[in-house]
């Protein structure tokens, strides 16, 4: 399972169907297309920590505009 698929799994678990993960692609914008607000991002960061074992920080947030940015950030932190 690649990083995007695993991220979709986290989205499904955290938002329990409130977000249609099937339509999420790397170009989806987190705030608009995915509908992620600030508290949603917080839940997502905690979910990512559990799934991937990587810790996102406040400094990472401005770089995260699209799902692709999130995928790259997680992969970068996994190295």
């Amino acid at each position: 399972m690649n990083t995007l698929e695993r991220l979709k799994k986290v989205l499904d678990n955290v938002f329990e169907g409130e977000i249609d993960s099937a339509s999420v692609t790397e170009s989806s914008v987190l705030s608009d297309d995915v509908g992620m607000n600030s508290i949603g991002m917080l839940y997502m960061a905690m979910g990512i920590e559990q799934e991937f074992g990587v810790k996102l920080t406040n400094a990472d947030l401005p770089d995260l505009v699209t799902v692709g940015d999130l995928v790259r950030k997680v992969e970068e932190k996994q190295k």
Partner: peptide
């Protein structure tokens, strides 16, 4: 804690 952003650092 900054309530305007997803303050991950403060939660951690």
């Amino acid at each position: 804690i900054d309530r305007g952003i997803s303050d991950i650092d403060a939660v951690r």
